[in-house]
Every structure is written in structure tokens, then in C-alpha cells.
Amino acid sequence: MASTAVSDIPRPRADLAAAAMDDATLIAACRRGDARAMELLYHQYKRRVFGLCHRIVGPVDAEEVAQEVFVRVFRGLAGFRGDAQLGTWIYRLAVNCALTQAGKQRRRQEVGDDHLEEVAAPPVASRDPRLSRRVEAAMAELPAGYRAILVLHDVEGLSHEECAAIMDCRVGTSKSQLHKARMRMRELLGPALAAERLPGGEAP
């Protein structure tokens, strides 16, 4: 995959030699203020953290929220008790930060339960060839919490167990939230999803 492109840019390879560190070693090194360990931890989690932020709060605020997440991670490592996986803990911070920010955003397009009814069928530019762009637009219309579970499970591909640990809820709740989020997405995308079938043919 092309996913190594960015991380490869100017980074000395020597740093990556430390990649074998397990979480406990990494945490211990970060707590000691080891700059390389901190950077390594950042690179390990940056893509998913940034992805979560980006999808939940949108492109404008994503960078700032991602910064906040990592600042909290490094500032909070001392108090990290290890009762959750490091990754789970970091993603939980990310989701919480992003949801908090999403709650604060004064979007020009206000999104809320009462409003969603009115925009159930967004003006879909039917000539838009890119389904993914429509999917992004529809996601932006979702309440932030739906967006969060949809991103964790369907975009990032985490299991319901992982989602539940991150959202700090039961597995059943995670499932039912996801179900509702998908149904809402289908309502929002309805015409787009259907239209895609005609010319495109095969489902992926």
C-alpha cells in the first residue's frame, strides 16, 4: 500500500530500529522523556488518531484536535494505569477530544436530531462520480456520536469489542449504535447508493 509514503519522508532509519519496542517499554521510555520514544509512539498512532479526528470533526479542526490528543497522551502517560491497551486508551482520548470539539463546533450547517429530518435527502450532485465524496458529505450530516462509531468500525475496521472499549460502552450498545448510524447513512445516501449500481455494475 502507499500508506508508508508520509512516514518515510525525512525520518532517519535508525529511529525505526526501535520499532520492536513493546508497549510497556515504549511507555516507560516516554515517561522518562525519551524524545525518540515519544516520536515513535506518535508515528505508531498518528494515522489512526488523525483519521478519527478528521472524520469526526472535519478537515478544518482535525489538526488542532489531533494535537490536543497527543498532548494529552504524553501528558497523561504518567497516569496511564495499563488497565486498557495503549491503543484503546489513545483512541478513547481521540474520540473524546473529537466529540467534545464536535459538540462545540458552530457549524454553519447545524446538525442535530431536529435538523436531520429536514436534510434527510441531501442535494446529491448526481453527476458526482465519486461515491466516497458523497459518503464523506453524508457523514458530515450525522450526529457526531454516530460518526464516531461508524469511523471506528466501518472505516478503521475495528471490532465491536474494540469499539466498545474505546467508547466505554457495552458491545451491544456499540452494535445498536452502528446499526442506527448505517441506517441513517443509507437514508442520507439513498439515491447515491442506488444510482451507483446502474452504471457501475458490480458491487465491490
Partner: peptide, 15 residues
């Protein structure tokens, strides 16, 4: 549904 939603998220003012 609303109560379940509250389990994770923000709700804009209820209808």
C-alpha cells in the same frame, strides 16, 4: 432510541 444515543453522544436540542 434517544436514550441509547445519549450513551455515546451529543444530542442537539430534542424536537
Amino acid at each position: 432510541a434517544r436514550r441509547a444515543l445519549a450513551a455515546v453522544v451529543s444530542i442537539a436540542l430534542a424536537a
